[in-house]
Amino acid sequence: MIPYLITIAILVIIAALIGLALNLQWGLAGLVNFGVVGFVAIGAYTTALTAPSIGWLPAMILAALIAAALSAGLALLSIRLEENYLAIITIGFGEAVRLVILNEGWLTNGALGIANIQRPFASLTEQFGGDIVFVIFAIGVLAVVFVALEGWTRAPFGRALRAIRDDATISAALGKPVFALRVRAFAIGGAVMGLAGALQAFYLTYIDPSQFSAIVTSYAFMAVIAGGRGSNVGLLVGAGSIMALLEGTRFLKDFISVIDGVQLSALRLGLIGVGIILQLILRPQGLVPEARRKAADVLAKPREAA
């Protein structure tokens, strides 16, 4: 049971990282990104390919940087487009990444994937046994990312992004460099997605193109919608509950005897869809509302950071 819970914990952390990134891009800045999985895949493959030669930490940093650079590039090309067209471009990007990985065998080993990826702290892992060390490492990464994103969200940077999401024209008339801010938000999100991919490569120690299908993107959107657009705390709750639903429904077969396991597994995804729809009807703002700065906070504490 313990190894299973650890697996779930790590999958939740990876999903939460991807969700946090999308929450910045889409939740806060209003930039729809249906190519999330492409950036995760780039992070994973960068890590898998470079970690043996440059070490795990530089490989993770490189994964984040490459994903950020590609995000920024894609944003520069397409972000002037209206929302719907940006959606189309990002879908295309996600697919293109998958196809490149599948077909450029000299680099990515094609459909066979890359095996035997060395985890960070591999020697420690042997010493303590199991995946405990890796869970702690993953929690550490999540914590750093969460604190940084929460800092950005609550800073004037986050407020400007929210303003741009609400109305880009007004924000521009108020002197906000809309284009530059959007590109930055998109690049930061891309970097975090790259990190999530790196964690996935390290955890599974094996990656292949089939891991990077569009369902990863869907889970990220579900987590943002469930948690509440713009709220990072809500996103963690959302990602947690989506994964809990996905995994928890596996155990339904122990309690329900009317339908068999095969039917149940087919029903699981449907149940999650129903859950999301119910939530959108009953609580459209998400589980946790977006944080707003209270006037009294800013007025009262001149030197203190609240």
Binding site: A148, G151, W152, A155, P156, F157, G158, R159, A160, R162, A163, R165, D166, D167, T169, I170, S171, L174, G175, K176, L181, R184, I188, G230, E290, R292, R293, K294, A295, V298
Partner: peptide, 28 residues
């Protein structure tokens, strides 16, 4: 065209020019 999801006060705080907290590095 108000920025509807911002509070009245946030609407005003948004406007001033040269806010260092709008930079990616300086925000953190």
């Amino acid at each position: 065209r108000e920025l509807g999801s911002l509070t009245v006060f946030e609407n005003l705080l948004l406007a001033p020019r040269h806010q260092s907290g709008e930079g990616v590095g300086a925000a953190l």
